[in-house]
Nucleic acid binder design. Sequence first.
RNA 1: GCGCCCGUAGCUCAACCGGAUAGAGCAGCGGUCUUCUAAACCGCAGGCUGCAGGUUCGAGUCCUGCCGGGCGCGCCA
Length: 559
Amino acid sequence: MREYIANRILTALEEMGGVPEGFAPDFQQPANPEHGDLATNAAMQLSRALRRAPRQIAEELVRRLVLDPRRVASAEVAGPGFINFRFSDRYVSEALRDILEQGDRYGRTATGAGRRAIVEFVSANPTGPLTVGHGRNAVLGDTIANLYDWTGWDTTREYYFNDAGRQMRILAQSVEARYRALADPSHGTKTIDGAGEPVVVPESFPEDGYLGDYIATIAGELFERHGTTLLGGDVQPFKEAAETAIFAEIKATLVRLGIRMDTYFNERTLYESGEIWRIVDALKARDLAYEKDGAVWFRTTAYGKETDTVLVKSTGEPTYRLPDIGYHVEKLGRGFDRVVDIFGADHIATFPDVLSGVKALGHDADRIQVIIYQFVTLVRGGEPVKMSTRKATYVTLDELMDEVSEDVTRFFFLMRSPNTHLEFDLDLAKEASEKNPVFYLQYAHARICSILRKAEEVGFAAATDADLGLLTHETETALVKTLLSFPDVLDRAAEAHEPHRVATYLREVAVAFTQFYGACRIIGEAAPVAAARMRLAVATRHVLRNGLSVLGIGAPERM
RNA sequence: GCGCCCGUAGCUCAACCGGAUAGAGCAGCGGUCUUCUAAACCGCAGGCUGCAGGUUCGAGUCCUGCCGGGCGCGCCA
């Protein structure tokens, strides 16, 4: 519809002349229903170029505008120069028929058709269970991937990790120390500081080791399986056991959240392929990298930073920036048209270096979209909770889901814009979970299912040939019009990488349906009217179900 | 000190590329179940959009400065 009206406007404007090259009228959905179904501010935008008053332009435009009355009922000038369009009844009922035909595909668009996107998210190294902090990343990334999928992109979900660094070494040593305490009765103990409190640990436990219970569990399993045979040996078996166990747990947590990765990318690949050293050479060849004090530096001052940045330490070990650059070059090399990263706010200062590196190597960094989300502040008993994976002062995602359910967890992380801080009050989430807005959406869906069940009981099959023109009540047309914007909402949410728009929209759908439900009965009305209303209910169910599915949230048939 | 994000109703947050009278939920007050799910609906109250300038037909939105909160600024990841 937008496209149709835009074309008609451009045709009319052509006759008027003086319109700037490439002008595209902008549309919005008026907040006030008195302002019609669609509005354009084209006349105001053109005021300057045409050197005429907006209202005058708008009036001439409307006079010249040729619109098919079967689609558009009216076009009128209002306010400072808006042109308000009202859809015809015929268009509205045809659009509703279209929703019903598309069913569980309704909402899908072809915006990204023929293009490929990769969304990298979670990407936690296997040093411990996923925490509430990872939750926002995981749910945001998965839902953004869903949005790409629904808007026609060929979408890949990827998990990037590093199992070779210092943290993994400390993790392995932590497991080994717990194991020794089990396998060797003579192994002593010591006291270290953990989260401000003294903790008793095995004597060989690293000062900054991991204190979580899962470490002891892994050590216990090793002892059961291998007895004392691992004593005094290499640390490698401990590392492998820890990585295997922790990754299994992470994947299980993701599955609970409804997340399945398509690919896993190990940072080590970039070392083994020699990719990172090729990058160093290429940067040096362009005089964007140089050696100083035994280290290799990236000339980030050439990109507006105050200082240059170390790429390879004097120990010969790369900093994480180098493989990050390599990883992004590699992803672009795989032919993705869009490379999306989901990062926490702590990466805000580092990803520009990565983009600079990608650009320096002659790649198209514009294909890379970095989504920065603000941190989750966990509040318990009115106090913010400090979290650390190493010190085990965290709340895991699994614990959170146990407390408030998977659906509430997902919705909570999605209902707010990524770039606002998210305050997660645990007490509130637990106590007031029944008041959570997600239930409102699910309830509307369950209610529709209930009506359809009831209709069947009383022998009221939902005829597919209903006369949709009978839907003339205020709440009926309002509901249909709300349903109509679903594809557009998905397009915009995908483009902006803002899943919360879908959540906000679904609430509007649920409100519109509930108002219709309150004002109009279905079962018991004259057959033609009842049939038409049932079709409307079915269409609404499609939008709710499809929308919830984009968010990764269940659509229960009864509650 | 520098960079980025945020500041909107008592609380948590919306506001689509700068548009028309800034909207929801929760909390508060008052109504509504003999009829398809009351996990609901209707109504009332609640605002100098942190402050001060600027840009323009028009600013919560863009620019500058200040105030307040968060995150980051390492040969750590």
